[in-house]
Design a protein around this nucleic acid. Structure first.
Lengths: 210, 210
DNA sequence: CCTTCATTTGAGAGTCACTGTCAGACGAGG
DNA sequence: CCTCGTCTGACAGTGACTCTCAAATGAAGG
Protein backbone atom coordinates (compact mmCIF):
# COMPACT_ATOMS: atom_id res chain seq x y z
CA UNK A 1 0.00 0.00 0.00
CA UNK A 2 1.26 3.47 -0.89
CA UNK A 3 0.69 6.57 1.16
CA UNK A 4 -3.01 6.01 0.73
CA UNK A 5 -3.92 9.07 -1.28
CA UNK A 6 -1.19 9.76 -3.76
CA UNK A 7 -1.22 6.71 -6.02
CA UNK A 8 -2.32 6.65 -9.63
CA UNK A 9 -4.59 3.81 -8.67
CA UNK A 10 -6.30 5.82 -5.95
CA UNK A 11 -6.63 8.92 -8.06
CA UNK A 12 -8.17 7.01 -10.94
CA UNK A 13 -10.68 5.44 -8.63
CA UNK A 14 -11.65 8.78 -7.12
CA UNK A 15 -11.97 10.34 -10.57
CA UNK A 16 -14.14 7.48 -11.78
CA UNK A 17 -16.43 7.77 -8.77
CA UNK A 18 -16.83 11.51 -9.23
CA UNK A 19 -17.51 11.01 -12.92
CA UNK A 20 -20.12 8.36 -12.23
CA UNK A 21 -21.92 10.58 -9.72
CA UNK A 22 -21.93 13.55 -12.07
CA UNK A 23 -23.09 11.54 -15.06
CA UNK A 24 -25.74 9.76 -13.01
CA UNK A 25 -27.15 12.99 -11.60
CA UNK A 26 -27.42 14.41 -15.11
CA UNK A 27 -29.24 11.32 -16.32
CA UNK A 28 -31.55 11.39 -13.30
CA UNK A 29 -32.41 15.04 -13.94
CA UNK A 30 -33.13 14.19 -17.52
CA UNK A 31 -35.15 11.02 -17.22
CA UNK A 32 -35.87 10.49 -13.53
CA UNK A 33 -34.09 8.26 -11.03
CA UNK A 34 -36.12 5.14 -11.59
CA UNK A 35 -36.01 5.30 -15.38
CA UNK A 36 -32.22 5.21 -15.49
CA UNK A 37 -30.56 1.82 -15.12
CA UNK A 38 -27.20 1.20 -13.52
CA UNK A 39 -26.04 -0.30 -16.78
CA UNK A 40 -26.76 2.96 -18.58
CA UNK A 41 -24.91 4.94 -15.95
CA UNK A 42 -21.96 2.61 -16.27
CA UNK A 43 -21.85 2.87 -20.02
CA UNK A 44 -22.12 6.67 -19.99
CA UNK A 45 -19.32 6.78 -17.43
CA UNK A 46 -16.99 4.42 -19.28
CA UNK A 47 -16.87 1.83 -16.56
CA UNK A 48 -18.41 -1.59 -16.14
CA UNK A 49 -21.56 -2.13 -14.08
CA UNK A 50 -19.42 -4.28 -11.80
CA UNK A 51 -17.32 -1.28 -10.95
CA UNK A 52 -20.32 0.87 -10.15
CA UNK A 53 -21.41 -1.69 -7.59
CA UNK A 54 -17.88 -2.07 -6.30
CA UNK A 55 -17.65 1.69 -5.76
CA UNK A 56 -21.11 2.47 -4.44
CA UNK A 57 -22.66 -0.80 -3.36
CA UNK A 58 -26.10 0.17 -4.55
CA UNK A 59 -27.84 2.48 -6.97
CA UNK A 60 -29.10 4.69 -4.13
CA UNK A 61 -25.63 5.28 -2.80
CA UNK A 62 -24.59 6.85 -6.10
CA UNK A 63 -26.78 9.71 -4.96
CA UNK A 64 -26.44 9.44 -1.19
CA UNK A 65 -22.83 8.45 -0.57
CA UNK A 66 -21.37 10.64 2.11
CA UNK A 67 -24.51 12.73 2.55
CA UNK A 68 -26.05 13.01 6.01
CA UNK A 69 -23.37 10.94 7.60
CA UNK A 70 -20.93 12.28 10.08
CA UNK A 71 -17.60 11.29 11.42
CA UNK A 72 -17.60 10.59 15.14
CA UNK A 73 -13.89 11.15 15.24
CA UNK A 74 -14.18 14.63 13.82
CA UNK A 75 -11.86 16.87 15.76
CA UNK A 76 -14.52 19.50 16.19
CA UNK A 77 -16.43 17.23 18.53
CA UNK A 78 -13.68 17.72 21.09
CA UNK A 79 -14.13 21.46 20.91
CA UNK A 80 -17.66 21.09 22.17
CA UNK A 81 -16.55 19.46 25.39
CA UNK A 82 -18.61 20.85 28.23
CA UNK A 83 -21.26 22.19 25.89
CA UNK A 84 -24.88 21.11 25.76
CA UNK A 85 -26.12 18.34 23.49
CA UNK A 86 -27.30 21.00 21.10
CA UNK A 87 -23.84 22.54 21.12
CA UNK A 88 -22.39 19.17 20.29
CA UNK A 89 -24.96 18.79 17.56
CA UNK A 90 -24.08 22.18 16.17
CA UNK A 91 -20.47 21.10 15.87
CA UNK A 92 -21.53 17.87 14.24
CA UNK A 93 -23.81 19.84 11.97
CA UNK A 94 -20.99 22.12 10.95
CA UNK A 95 -18.91 19.11 10.02
CA UNK A 96 -21.80 17.61 8.07
CA UNK A 97 -22.58 20.87 6.33
CA UNK A 98 -19.01 21.38 5.27
CA UNK A 99 -19.22 18.08 3.48
CA UNK A 100 -22.72 18.70 2.20
CA UNK A 101 -22.57 22.29 1.06
CA UNK A 102 -18.84 22.78 0.92
CA UNK A 103 -18.95 20.93 -2.32
CA UNK A 104 -21.80 22.47 -4.21
CA UNK A 105 -25.03 23.93 -2.88
CA UNK A 106 -26.97 23.50 -6.10
CA UNK A 107 -25.94 19.90 -6.32
CA UNK A 108 -27.56 19.20 -2.96
CA UNK A 109 -30.86 20.58 -4.24
CA UNK A 110 -30.71 18.38 -7.29
CA UNK A 111 -30.06 15.40 -5.06
CA UNK A 112 -32.89 16.29 -2.71
CA UNK A 113 -35.35 16.65 -5.52
CA UNK A 114 -34.74 13.04 -6.50
CA UNK A 115 -34.58 11.78 -2.94
CA UNK A 116 -37.95 13.30 -2.12
CA UNK A 117 -39.68 11.94 -5.20
CA UNK A 118 -38.39 8.38 -5.29
CA UNK A 119 -39.52 5.87 -2.66
CA UNK A 120 -36.33 3.82 -2.78
CA UNK A 121 -34.13 6.87 -2.35
CA UNK A 122 -36.34 8.26 0.36
CA UNK A 123 -36.14 4.99 2.26
CA UNK A 124 -32.37 4.86 1.90
CA UNK A 125 -32.03 8.41 3.19
CA UNK A 126 -34.39 7.71 6.06
CA UNK A 127 -32.31 4.74 7.05
CA UNK A 128 -29.12 6.76 6.81
CA UNK A 129 -30.60 9.47 9.01
CA UNK A 130 -31.77 6.87 11.48
CA UNK A 131 -28.25 5.45 11.61
CA UNK A 132 -26.97 8.96 12.27
CA UNK A 133 -29.32 9.17 15.26
CA UNK A 134 -27.78 6.05 16.69
CA UNK A 135 -24.27 7.41 16.25
CA UNK A 136 -25.27 10.70 17.81
CA UNK A 137 -26.82 8.76 20.68
CA UNK A 138 -23.49 7.08 21.32
CA UNK A 139 -21.77 10.45 21.40
CA UNK A 140 -24.33 11.85 23.82
CA UNK A 141 -24.15 8.75 25.99
CA UNK A 142 -20.39 9.03 26.25
CA UNK A 143 -20.61 12.72 27.16
CA UNK A 144 -23.32 12.21 29.73
CA UNK A 145 -21.67 9.11 31.14
CA UNK A 146 -24.83 7.11 30.64
CA UNK A 147 -25.48 3.78 28.93
CA UNK A 148 -26.09 4.07 25.22
CA UNK A 149 -29.51 2.47 25.59
CA UNK A 150 -30.65 5.03 28.14
CA UNK A 151 -34.13 6.25 27.29
CA UNK A 152 -33.37 9.94 27.72
CA UNK A 153 -30.20 9.68 25.68
CA UNK A 154 -31.99 7.92 22.85
CA UNK A 155 -34.93 10.30 22.90
CA UNK A 156 -32.57 13.27 22.94
CA UNK A 157 -30.53 12.01 20.01
CA UNK A 158 -33.54 11.11 17.92
CA UNK A 159 -35.27 14.37 18.77
CA UNK A 160 -32.27 16.39 17.65
CA UNK A 161 -32.03 14.49 14.39
CA UNK A 162 -35.79 14.72 14.05
CA UNK A 163 -35.57 18.49 14.30
CA UNK A 164 -33.03 18.56 11.50
CA UNK A 165 -35.19 16.25 9.42
CA UNK A 166 -38.10 18.60 9.97
CA UNK A 167 -35.91 21.39 8.70
CA UNK A 168 -34.97 19.39 5.66
CA UNK A 169 -38.63 18.75 4.95
CA UNK A 170 -39.40 22.45 5.35
CA UNK A 171 -36.53 23.34 3.04
CA UNK A 172 -37.87 20.98 0.40
CA UNK A 173 -41.45 22.15 0.88
CA UNK A 174 -40.51 25.78 0.40
CA UNK A 175 -38.68 25.16 -2.83
CA UNK A 176 -35.22 25.05 -1.24
CA UNK A 177 -35.40 28.70 -0.26
CA UNK A 178 -32.29 30.05 1.40
CA UNK A 179 -29.14 28.25 2.47
CA UNK A 180 -29.75 24.87 4.05
CA UNK A 181 -27.24 25.66 6.76
CA UNK A 182 -29.36 28.56 8.01
CA UNK A 183 -32.53 26.49 8.07
CA UNK A 184 -30.89 23.73 10.07
CA UNK A 185 -29.36 26.26 12.44
CA UNK A 186 -32.81 27.68 13.07
CA UNK A 187 -34.08 24.19 13.86
CA UNK A 188 -31.50 23.80 16.58
CA UNK A 189 -32.39 27.28 17.85
CA UNK A 190 -36.00 26.18 18.16
CA UNK A 191 -34.94 23.15 20.13
CA UNK A 192 -32.80 25.18 22.51
CA UNK A 193 -35.43 27.80 23.03
CA UNK A 194 -37.82 24.96 23.79
CA UNK A 195 -40.64 24.10 21.46
CA UNK A 196 -44.10 24.92 22.69
CA UNK A 197 -44.63 21.25 22.69
CA UNK A 198 -46.80 21.04 25.74
CA UNK A 199 -48.61 24.33 25.36
CA UNK A 200 -52.29 24.34 24.51
CA UNK A 201 -52.93 25.19 20.91
CA UNK A 202 -53.96 28.82 20.71
CA UNK A 203 -51.56 30.05 18.05
CA UNK A 204 -49.53 32.82 19.67
CA UNK A 205 -48.79 35.37 16.95
CA UNK A 206 -49.85 33.75 13.73
CA UNK A 207 -52.02 36.07 11.65
CA UNK A 208 -54.84 34.50 9.73
CA UNK A 209 -53.50 33.02 6.54
CA UNK A 210 -54.90 30.59 4.00
CA UNK B 1 -70.25 -5.15 -4.30
CA UNK B 2 -71.43 -6.36 -0.93
CA UNK B 3 -71.33 -4.45 2.30
CA UNK B 4 -67.56 -4.51 2.10
CA UNK B 5 -66.75 -6.83 4.96
CA UNK B 6 -69.16 -9.73 4.95
CA UNK B 7 -68.53 -11.44 1.64
CA UNK B 8 -66.95 -14.86 1.20
CA UNK B 9 -64.54 -13.21 -1.19
CA UNK B 10 -63.48 -10.62 1.37
CA UNK B 11 -63.19 -13.14 4.16
CA UNK B 12 -61.05 -15.44 2.07
CA UNK B 13 -58.73 -12.63 1.18
CA UNK B 14 -58.37 -11.54 4.80
CA UNK B 15 -57.73 -15.11 5.88
CA UNK B 16 -55.09 -15.57 3.19
CA UNK B 17 -53.31 -12.36 4.20
CA UNK B 18 -53.26 -13.36 7.85
CA UNK B 19 -52.01 -16.82 6.92
CA UNK B 20 -49.25 -15.39 4.76
CA UNK B 21 -48.09 -13.04 7.51
CA UNK B 22 -48.08 -15.80 10.10
CA UNK B 23 -46.28 -18.29 7.86
CA UNK B 24 -43.77 -15.67 6.76
CA UNK B 25 -42.96 -14.62 10.31
CA UNK B 26 -42.34 -18.26 11.23
CA UNK B 27 -40.03 -18.73 8.27
CA UNK B 28 -38.20 -15.49 9.06
CA UNK B 29 -37.67 -16.59 12.66
CA UNK B 30 -36.36 -19.88 11.41
CA UNK B 31 -34.03 -18.80 8.62
CA UNK B 32 -33.84 -15.03 8.72
CA UNK B 33 -35.70 -12.45 6.64
CA UNK B 34 -33.27 -12.27 3.78
CA UNK B 35 -32.86 -16.01 3.39
CA UNK B 36 -36.55 -16.58 2.78
CA UNK B 37 -37.87 -15.89 -0.72
CA UNK B 38 -41.34 -14.65 -1.52
CA UNK B 39 -41.84 -17.75 -3.60
CA UNK B 40 -41.21 -19.93 -0.57
CA UNK B 41 -43.63 -17.89 1.52
CA UNK B 42 -46.24 -18.20 -1.21
CA UNK B 43 -45.83 -21.94 -1.49
CA UNK B 44 -45.98 -22.47 2.27
CA UNK B 45 -49.11 -20.33 2.38
CA UNK B 46 -50.88 -22.08 -0.49
CA UNK B 47 -51.14 -19.03 -2.67
CA UNK B 48 -49.30 -17.86 -5.76
CA UNK B 49 -46.44 -15.35 -5.59
CA UNK B 50 -48.67 -13.06 -7.64
CA UNK B 51 -51.18 -12.96 -4.84
CA UNK B 52 -48.55 -12.15 -2.24
CA UNK B 53 -47.57 -9.10 -4.25
CA UNK B 54 -51.19 -8.22 -4.90
CA UNK B 55 -51.91 -8.30 -1.17
CA UNK B 56 -48.77 -6.70 0.23
CA UNK B 57 -47.05 -4.94 -2.64
CA UNK B 58 -43.59 -5.82 -1.41
CA UNK B 59 -41.77 -8.34 0.73
CA UNK B 60 -41.18 -5.77 3.47
CA UNK B 61 -44.86 -4.98 3.79
CA UNK B 62 -45.59 -8.59 4.73
CA UNK B 63 -43.91 -7.63 7.99
CA UNK B 64 -44.74 -3.94 8.20
CA UNK B 65 -48.26 -3.64 6.84
CA UNK B 66 -50.33 -1.48 9.14
CA UNK B 67 -47.54 -0.99 11.66
CA UNK B 68 -46.55 2.52 12.58
CA UNK B 69 -49.15 4.09 10.38
CA UNK B 70 -52.06 6.03 11.70
CA UNK B 71 -55.39 7.09 10.44
CA UNK B 72 -55.83 10.85 10.22
CA UNK B 73 -59.55 10.42 10.29
CA UNK B 74 -59.47 8.52 13.57
CA UNK B 75 -62.30 9.81 15.68
CA UNK B 76 -60.04 10.16 18.68
CA UNK B 77 -58.25 13.04 17.01
CA UNK B 78 -61.36 15.15 17.46
CA UNK B 79 -61.35 14.50 21.19
CA UNK B 80 -57.99 16.22 21.45
CA UNK B 81 -59.32 19.48 20.10
CA UNK B 82 -57.85 22.36 22.08
CA UNK B 83 -55.12 20.16 23.50
CA UNK B 84 -51.40 20.58 22.96
CA UNK B 85 -49.54 18.92 20.12
CA UNK B 86 -48.39 16.31 22.59
CA UNK B 87 -51.97 15.68 23.60
CA UNK B 88 -52.85 15.20 19.99
CA UNK B 89 -49.89 12.89 19.61
CA UNK B 90 -50.96 10.92 22.63
CA UNK B 91 -54.34 10.34 21.03
CA UNK B 92 -52.68 9.34 17.80
CA UNK B 93 -50.35 7.10 19.74
CA UNK B 94 -53.24 5.42 21.45
CA UNK B 95 -54.79 4.70 18.09
CA UNK B 96 -51.50 3.35 16.76
CA UNK B 97 -50.90 1.26 19.85
CA UNK B 98 -54.32 -0.30 19.70
CA UNK B 99 -53.44 -1.52 16.23
CA UNK B 100 -49.91 -2.45 17.17
CA UNK B 101 -50.31 -4.16 20.51
CA UNK B 102 -54.02 -4.81 20.43
CA UNK B 103 -53.26 -7.73 18.22
CA UNK B 104 -50.36 -9.49 19.86
CA UNK B 105 -47.55 -8.02 21.93
CA UNK B 106 -45.13 -10.87 21.35
CA UNK B 107 -45.69 -10.67 17.64
CA UNK B 108 -44.51 -7.06 17.64
CA UNK B 109 -41.25 -8.12 19.26
CA UNK B 110 -40.69 -10.79 16.66
CA UNK B 111 -41.31 -8.22 13.94
CA UNK B 112 -38.98 -5.70 15.54
CA UNK B 113 -36.19 -8.22 15.83
CA UNK B 114 -36.24 -8.70 12.07
CA UNK B 115 -36.75 -5.03 11.30
CA UNK B 116 -33.73 -4.04 13.36
CA UNK B 117 -31.44 -6.66 11.83
CA UNK B 118 -32.29 -6.35 8.16
CA UNK B 119 -31.26 -3.25 6.20
CA UNK B 120 -34.15 -3.44 3.76
CA UNK B 121 -36.72 -3.75 6.52
CA UNK B 122 -35.07 -1.03 8.55
CA UNK B 123 -35.16 1.30 5.57
CA UNK B 124 -38.80 0.50 4.89
CA UNK B 125 -39.73 1.20 8.51
CA UNK B 126 -37.72 4.40 8.54
CA UNK B 127 -39.53 5.57 5.46
CA UNK B 128 -42.88 4.66 6.97
CA UNK B 129 -42.04 6.58 10.12
CA UNK B 130 -40.93 9.53 8.05
CA UNK B 131 -44.23 9.46 6.20
CA UNK B 132 -46.01 9.42 9.55
CA UNK B 133 -44.14 12.58 10.48
CA UNK B 134 -45.47 14.27 7.40
CA UNK B 135 -49.01 13.22 8.20
CA UNK B 136 -48.66 14.39 11.77
CA UNK B 137 -47.29 17.66 10.46
CA UNK B 138 -50.44 18.15 8.43
CA UNK B 139 -52.56 17.51 11.50
CA UNK B 140 -50.55 20.00 13.55
CA UNK B 141 -50.63 22.56 10.78
CA UNK B 142 -54.39 22.33 10.55
CA UNK B 143 -54.74 22.69 14.31
CA UNK B 144 -52.39 25.64 14.51
CA UNK B 145 -53.83 27.29 11.41
CA UNK B 146 -50.42 27.48 9.85
CA UNK B 147 -49.14 26.38 6.48
CA UNK B 148 -48.06 22.77 6.35
CA UNK B 149 -44.55 23.77 5.33
CA UNK B 150 -44.09 26.05 8.33
CA UNK B 151 -40.72 25.43 9.91
CA UNK B 152 -41.96 25.19 13.48
CA UNK B 153 -44.76 22.85 12.50
CA UNK B 154 -42.40 20.55 10.65
CA UNK B 155 -39.81 20.59 13.40
CA UNK B 156 -42.50 19.91 15.97
CA UNK B 157 -43.94 16.97 14.06
CA UNK B 158 -40.58 15.42 13.33
CA UNK B 159 -39.40 15.97 16.89
CA UNK B 160 -42.44 14.20 18.29
CA UNK B 161 -41.99 11.26 15.96
CA UNK B 162 -38.26 11.33 16.66
CA UNK B 163 -38.98 10.99 20.36
CA UNK B 164 -41.09 7.93 19.69
CA UNK B 165 -38.40 6.49 17.45
CA UNK B 166 -35.90 7.03 20.23
CA UNK B 167 -38.20 5.09 22.51
CA UNK B 168 -38.46 2.30 19.98
CA UNK B 169 -34.69 2.14 19.79
CA UNK B 170 -34.42 2.07 23.56
CA UNK B 171 -37.01 -0.68 23.71
CA UNK B 172 -35.05 -2.76 21.23
CA UNK B 173 -31.75 -2.02 22.93
CA UNK B 174 -33.02 -3.16 26.30
CA UNK B 175 -34.30 -6.47 25.01
CA UNK B 176 -37.91 -5.32 24.64
CA UNK B 177 -38.30 -4.89 28.38
CA UNK B 178 -41.75 -3.83 29.50
CA UNK B 179 -44.79 -2.90 27.45
CA UNK B 180 -44.00 -0.75 24.42
CA UNK B 181 -46.94 1.48 25.23
CA UNK B 182 -45.39 2.54 28.53
CA UNK B 183 -42.03 3.28 26.94
CA UNK B 184 -43.59 5.47 24.28
CA UNK B 185 -45.74 7.22 26.86
CA UNK B 186 -42.62 8.05 28.82
CA UNK B 187 -41.06 9.51 25.67
CA UNK B 188 -43.93 11.93 25.31
CA UNK B 189 -43.66 12.76 29.00
CA UNK B 190 -40.02 13.68 28.48
CA UNK B 191 -40.98 15.94 25.62
CA UNK B 192 -43.66 17.70 27.63
CA UNK B 193 -41.46 18.14 30.64
CA UNK B 194 -38.88 19.58 28.29
CA UNK B 195 -35.67 17.77 27.55
CA UNK B 196 -32.56 19.32 29.02
CA UNK B 197 -31.59 19.89 25.47
CA UNK B 198 -29.89 23.21 25.97
CA UNK B 199 -28.47 22.56 29.39
CA UNK B 200 -24.74 22.21 29.72
CA UNK B 201 -23.57 18.68 30.15
CA UNK B 202 -22.65 18.00 33.74
CA UNK B 203 -19.01 17.14 33.64
CA UNK B 204 -16.04 17.68 35.89
CA UNK B 205 -14.53 19.98 33.30
CA UNK B 206 -15.56 23.60 33.56
CA UNK B 207 -17.82 24.84 30.75
CA UNK B 208 -16.48 27.73 28.74
CA UNK B 209 -19.26 28.47 26.28
CA UNK B 210 -21.34 31.64 26.25
C1' DC C 1 13.29 -0.59 -19.18
C1' DC C 2 11.67 -4.85 -17.67
C1' DT C 3 9.98 -8.30 -14.50
C1' DT C 4 7.30 -9.74 -10.75
C1' DC C 5 3.62 -9.18 -7.59
C1' DA C 6 -0.69 -7.46 -5.69
C1' DT C 7 -4.90 -5.36 -6.92
C1' DT C 8 -8.36 -3.99 -9.67
C1' DT C 9 -11.25 -4.43 -13.49
C1' DG C 10 -14.67 -6.30 -16.64
C1' DA C 11 -17.31 -10.13 -18.25
C1' DG C 12 -20.62 -13.57 -17.59
C1' DA C 13 -23.79 -16.31 -15.19
C1' DG C 14 -27.09 -16.57 -11.73
C1' DT C 15 -30.62 -15.09 -7.96
C1' DC C 16 -34.45 -12.67 -6.56
C1' DA C 17 -37.73 -8.81 -5.99
C1' DC C 18 -41.10 -6.94 -8.60
C1' DT C 19 -44.28 -5.79 -12.84
C1' DG C 20 -47.59 -6.56 -16.47
C1' DT C 21 -50.62 -9.50 -18.98
C1' DC C 22 -54.15 -12.77 -19.72
C1' DA C 23 -57.03 -16.79 -19.66
C1' DG C 24 -59.52 -19.44 -16.50
C1' DA C 25 -61.75 -19.92 -11.87
C1' DC C 26 -65.07 -18.56 -8.81
C1' DG C 27 -68.08 -15.67 -5.78
C1' DA C 28 -72.10 -12.39 -6.24
C1' DG C 29 -76.58 -11.57 -7.61
C1' DG C 30 -80.53 -12.51 -10.11
C1' DC D 1 -78.78 -22.41 -12.50
C1' DC D 2 -76.75 -18.92 -15.13
C1' DT D 3 -74.52 -14.74 -16.21
C1' DC D 4 -71.40 -11.11 -14.83
C1' DG D 5 -67.64 -9.04 -12.65
C1' DT D 6 -63.78 -9.75 -10.05
C1' DC D 7 -59.91 -12.36 -8.38
C1' DT D 8 -56.38 -15.82 -9.02
C1' DG D 9 -52.41 -18.18 -10.88
C1' DA D 10 -49.21 -18.89 -14.62
C1' DC D 11 -45.93 -16.88 -17.45
C1' DA D 12 -42.67 -13.81 -19.33
C1' DG D 13 -39.83 -10.08 -18.59
C1' DT D 14 -36.92 -6.27 -16.27
C1' DG D 15 -33.50 -4.63 -13.39
C1' DA D 16 -30.88 -4.56 -9.00
C1' DC D 17 -27.46 -7.03 -6.98
C1' DT D 18 -23.93 -11.04 -6.08
C1' DC D 19 -20.20 -14.20 -7.18
C1' DT D 20 -16.50 -15.89 -9.64
C1' DC D 21 -12.56 -15.76 -12.50
C1' DA D 22 -9.33 -14.52 -16.02
C1' DA D 23 -7.14 -10.51 -18.02
C1' DA D 24 -5.32 -5.93 -17.36
C1' DT D 25 -2.64 -2.74 -14.87
C1' DG D 26 -0.35 0.03 -11.33
C1' DA D 27 3.41 -0.62 -7.71
C1' DA D 28 8.06 -1.85 -6.53
C1' DG D 29 12.64 -3.54 -7.24
C1' DG D 30 16.34 -4.99 -10.22
Amino acid sequence: MTDADVGLRHRKRAAAMARIQAVALDLFDERGYEAVTVEQIAEASDVSPSSVYRYFGSKEQIVLLGEFEFDVSDSRLDDAAGGSPVDVTRQVLRAVMDHLVGDDEERTRRQMRHVMSDPALEAALARQVYAASETLGEVFAARLARPADDLEVQVLAHVVVGALLGGLHHWHGTGFAGPLRDVLDRCLDLLERGLQVGAPITRPTAPAEP
